[in-house]
Simulated assay, not measured.
Amino acid sequence: MDIDQEKRMAGDYEIIHALHIGDREIVLGENPSAPEDERYVCAFCQQHEIFANYTEVMVSDDYPELVKLFGERVAEQAEKTHITLNGPKIQGIPNSAITAEDCEQVSYQEDIRGKVVVIRPEVLRREYRHATCQLQLCTSGSGAYPNSRGTACYCTELYSGQRARFERSDILGVIAPEDLPKWAKHYLELRQAEKERNSRDREGR
């Protein structure tokens, strides 16, 4: 195997350090062939399905300077994420990770559309391995159908309303609405009301 194929590149820069926390990734890259004062780069990166978008790009030939910037950006993003994820605690929501014992296992022969699914904690980044991030309303996707060859499951997070794509294998199990904790029942009602409202809006166009 050619070791060069394993390198992560951003244009002509090799990414030598990267840390993703919360909703942003901070990267540090190097290009020994770059013009003077542009050997190193520090930026925020947002990955899309077929490309990556880099913002707030800073270049320099001073490696310690950009390492310092990299660290500052990591610290700022970590603090921002800490504040955001502290919301459930402030609301008094028990937010321990949900395990297999806390939900009902589902087979690939079952239809999970419209059901509240539990995402396996290990497929989430470390900062998101909590109940508020695991509980999702499965809305669509070929993987949500029984006996489907597809694997994509499109879900809406109960707590935040954010939408995400998961694999069918990422789903640990399901929880019936009546068995949800009180906070989750509240947010499930909100998401269902939003879905009905959006449907009415589309029909009224």
Score class of each variant (00 low, 15 high):
66 L>T: 04
84 T>M: 10
151 T>K: 15
32 P>L: 02
46 Q>K: 10
50 I>F: 08
132 T>W: 05
148 S>L: 09
122 E>N: 10
88 P>Y: 07
46 Q>M: 11
159 Y>I: 06
48 H>E: 11
133 C>W: 13
64 P>V: 03
143 G>L: 06
32 P>V: 05
101 E>K: 14
117 V>F: 03
59 V>R: 14
25 E>L: 07
53 N>T: 08
54 Y>T: 03
104 E>Q: 14
37 D>W: 08
101 E>L: 10
90 I>H: 04
84 T>F: 10
78 A>P: 01
143 G>I: 05
93 I>P: 04
136 Q>N: 12
118 V>N: 01
91 Q>T: 07
37 D>V: 09
157 E>P: 00
139 T>Q: 13
37 D>L: 07
29 G>F: 01
117 V>A: 11
150 G>C: 11
54 Y>V: 05
140 S>V: 05
103 C>N: 05
118 V>Y: 01
60 S>Y: 07
145 Y>E: 14
95 N>P: 07
157 E>M: 12
126 R>F: 11
71 G>H: 11
95 N>M: 10
86 N>I: 00
63 Y>N: 05
35 P>F: 04
55 T>W: 00
67 V>N: 02
57 V>H: 00
36 E>T: 11
26 I>L: 10
89 K>D: 11
30 E>D: 08
119 I>C: 06
116 V>A: 01
37 D>R: 14
74 V>S: 04
141 G>C: 09
106 V>D: 06
89 K>S: 15
106 V>M: 13
103 C>F: 02
107 S>R: 14
99 T>W: 02
79 E>V: 08
87 G>W: 11
100 A>I: 10
108 Y>V: 15
31 N>G: 02
55 T>M: 06
40 Y>V: 04
126 R>A: 14
145 Y>F: 12
39 R>C: 04
68 K>R: 14
96 S>F: 13
113 R>N: 13
80 K>L: 10
75 A>C: 08
119 I>Q: 01
70 F>E: 00
124 L>C: 07
51 F>W: 05
30 E>C: 08
93 I>L: 04
138 C>H: 06
105 Q>F: 12
45 C>A: 14
116 V>Q: 00
76 E>P: 00
82 H>N: 15
130 H>Y: 12
79 E>T: 09
99 T>K: 07
60 S>L: 06
35 P>E: 02
123 V>A: 04
87 G>A: 15
95 N>C: 11
41 V>Y: 00
27 V>P: 01
74 V>G: 04
41 V>P: 00
142 S>G: 15
78 A>G: 06
114 G>W: 02
72 E>R: 15
73 R>W: 14
132 T>D: 03
158 L>G: 03
102 D>M: 08
103 C>G: 06
122 E>Y: 05
32 P>Q: 02
66 L>D: 01
130 H>N: 13
54 Y>N: 03
140 S>P: 05
125 R>M: 14
94 P>C: 09
63 Y>K: 15
69 L>C: 11
97 A>E: 14
